[in-house]
Each structure stands twice: as C-alpha cells, then as structure tokens.
Design a protein around this nucleic acid. Sequence first.
RNA 1: GCCGCCAUCGUCUAGCCUGGUUUAGGACGUAGCCCUCUCAAGGCUAUGGCACGGGUUCAAAUCCCGUUGGCGGUACCA
Length: 497
Amino acid sequence: MNTINSKTTIRVRFAPSPTGYLHIGGLRTALFNYLFARHNNGSFILRIEDTDRTRYVEGAVENLISILNWVGIEYDEGPFMDNSGKIFQKGSFAPYIQSQRLEIYQKYTDELLEKGYAYRCFCSAERLDFVRKQQMLNKQPPKYDRFCRNISKKESDILAKEKPFTVRMKIPDEDIKFEDIVRGKVVFQGTLIDDQILLKTDKFPTYHLANVVDDHLMEITHVIRGEEWLSSTPKHVLLYQYFGWEIPTFAHLPLLLNPDKSKLSKRSGDVAVEDYKREGYLPEAILNYVSLLGWSTENSQQFFTKEELIEKFTLNRCSQSPAVFDKQKLLWMNGEYIRKSELEKLFFYAKPFLECAKISLQNKDYIKQLIAIEQEKIKLLKEIPELIEYFFYPDDNIKYNEQAIKKFLSTEKQKQILVQLFEILKNEQNFDKLNLENIIRNFCEKNDLKTSEVFHPLRVAVSGRTQGPGLFDLLVLLGKDKVLNRIKISLKKFLKE
RNA sequence: GCCGCCAUCGUCUAGCCUGGUUUAGGACGUAGCCCUCUCAAGGCUAUGGCACGGGUUCAAAUCCCGUUGGCGGUACCA
C-alpha cells in the first residue's frame, strides 16, 4: 500500500515540561518542529507536559508562551495567553495541559491492565531502592525485578483497595525495532528494558504514558524531539502496539552541548532564552543561529529569514552528531542582524534598554540618529545606552577618560588647536556635517596639522572619549551650543596654564 | 557496569547515501595587512581538520569490521 497520502496532514508538537523558562535546547526542538510543520503545510501544537507535581513552577506556562511569542514561533493549537496574561486553550483536542487530562490517562491505564499488558506494582520506594543497590553491587544492570508482575488479577484487585500502587508496563523479551528519520534503524533488546512505570502512586502518568496517549489522541504524525529520548523510544513503540495504534514517525535530533561537550545545561551559563533576550539579542538572530545547530543546507548558507528557513527545512538534512552551542558565533550573528536592521525596528528593540538606563525616549528621532551613528558596532542591544549616554550629560559633568586627557588635552599645541577651533566654530552658522568637515579639514591644511592631531583633541573635548562615531556626526548631533560649551569647559578644566 | 547514539579545522558545518570532479569547501574565532579621525564595519591573506587500526577496491573522508574517545539513557524526572 502506498502510504504517501496528501490528505494526511502532518501534525507535530512541541511538548515541554514547564520548568520556569525556555531552554535553548527546547527552543531548537520547538523551532525544528515549527519549521517542519510550516514547510509541509501541517499543524504545530504546543502541549504542556506537567505530570511531575514535585516540579511545579508558578507562572511557568505563561513564561513559556510569552517567550515563544517573543521569538516568533507560532503554534496552531494549545494553550495561548490573552492580553491580560490569562491562559486559554484553542484546538479540538483541548485541554493541551496534561495535568488537566488525568482521567484520560487513567482510562488508558485501565485498558492496558485489562489487556494484561500492564500490572499493578505494590513495591515500596524503599524496596525498589534496596533492589537497585543490590544489583549495582553485583554489577548487574539496575532493573526492576518484576516482583509484582505475577500477582494474580484477583489478588491485585484486592490489594489495590488497601495499598498504594503504581502501574507498570510489561516489557517482552524480544528485540524492539523502529525507524528514525535521522538515525535510521534502531534496535533495543527487550530483556534490558525496565518494566516502566506508567502511572504513579499519585495517579499522575509518567512521561511515557502521557506522551504516547496524547500523541495518538492529538493525531501527531511525527515525533521530533531531542536525542535524550532515543533510549525510551522502544517503550513508546511498545505502547503503541499494545494499544493497537499507528506508530508515528520518529526523528531524534542531536543534542546541544556545552563547550565542554556535556549536555547543554545551566552550568555553562545562559541557557534560558530569556537570558538572551535580556542581554539584547534579537529574536531573528537567535532563531537563525539555532537553526544552524544540527541542520544545514548543501551550500552551508549562514543567513536565513524565517520564510527561507521554512522553505528550505527538511529533516533529512539534520545532522546526527551533537553540536556545541557557540555563544561567540551567536554574538557575531546578532551584530550582523543589528547592522542590517531598519532603524525603526532597532529603536523598538532598544527601547527597554534605554528606559532601563533612564534615557528619555521623548525625542525619538534624535535617539534614532544616535543609534544610527553607532549601529555598525553594536553587538548587543544592552550596549546602546553606554554608547550614547554622553550626549545627554550636562556639559559640565562629562566623564572624561583619564588617559584620553593625558594624551589629547595636555599640551600647549593641543590647547591652541582647541582655542582656534572654538573661534572658528563660534562664527559658523551652518552646522551641518559637510560644512563642518570642510572647515575643519581646511583648518588642518592651513596650519599644516595632521588630521589626527586635530580630530582627537576635539573629540575628547566634546565627548570625554577617544572612541565614538565619526567626528562630524558627533559634532552635528551634539549641536553647536554643546560643542562650544564643552570645548570651553575642557579648556578651563584641563588646559589652563 | 550495561544499553544506545555519535565521530571532517578550537567551534558550527559542506562533501559521505550514489567511492575518482577534493591540493577536503564555507562560516565563527584567532593572527597579519589594507582602508581610516578613534572604535567598529568592510576588503585581502594566513591559521587549522577527515580519531586510530584493519579490510574491500585500480581508487576511500566517502563502503565494511574492529578499537578508542565523547555523549545520552539506565527514576513513582521530563
């Protein structure tokens, strides 16, 4: 039978557990799912896997949604957030939050129990612990000893009324095989797999059960997730078989690594997408960079718009080997994106950083001009305030760099230059860039001075710094009054006899 | 320990499937030079890699086997 059927729409999901922030690795998984869905005109679903009550984090779902919105990964079904920050769910398979689906998992657990593919386990945590330790001591693989597997149905039913229990799935001794788009054929020996717990004592499902049940119910066609799931996939495959459900296509993406090659984690520094937002990375840059981890085109193209990504993304161009998350390259890419940004957009992104530095946004056009003259050197949005703040200092309260003073505001010659420049500029009515450049360059020529001998002292006098935008941009944007005033103050402060 | 996955410059990767077109290409980083009023940006150049050992073949980065190494999993976590 030909299984390629254009009527079968592709449905994929991103199913994070809400930990309080979106992990970069999670972002990558979400992105690949998203790209795959859009490329194939399929649906992309967000599902919250919050079946571990001990890990409950207040506001985690809200946080996840807002960061997904920020990076621009749109999903079609799942929990959404309205303007007031309230969660609502959209899609015909709601709810999409697993803690709200407990009856469903209970029902399917009962079915498995009924069919004899699962059994109740009454072992205490202590016993389990003891057994595991013994096995380790004997250098045996730690595995549940199936102590409760052969309790009769009758006895189990009776015990269930008085004792807490978990439900475990029966793992057969045969090999379990499955096909993975990025790994190819994968085989696991059944004898080595634990009788996995499906339902915990608290009646919450474990990941394995909830995941399989929901993927089936939500008609997920492709399971695209991180490689850390590869070794539990045989359990999932088995569950599909036990239920008699069609097995989705699996694609396990290579892991993202710390520079020391361990699985990307907090100890490597920032792993929360939020952290990158806070630093002043652009969402476009983050998406572009992350798309390159574990995926590439034939020509190793570096820059992609989201549309291009959607157009070009295919799972068979995903790599099988893990990728180190290189912050340096991300930083470079962010700089590239900032440089290419429209001013209006850049201003929009820069707003919170300016506000934070107490730079007034009143005169928007002026700030945009300031950003424009520094745009090519900005790598992170958070650098912007520091780069432009001296435009707003009171003239008599500029922070002068000490070395700059020593170097450029100390000699008699430098003093004379500034005195003369002051006179020239004072009489200049036309303070535009071209004109200023003409005047000052003429001044250099007439007095047989190198441009650097003139430009540097002037720059330091009006800005306090040796670095900054081109001198004439600087003068124009400062304006005549400030320029004259600051020269006067510098002369008085540093160059009086 | 056991099971699984992976293996091209320091890092991300192209090439591998369908062996010869490869003196292994690109990007980040690093270094140098050019441009230049500074810092950047830009341009140019350099740097640096097929983990190892066996096969197969006229020919292997490409196919096979083994070794080594890295990582993941081995939870009433996801």
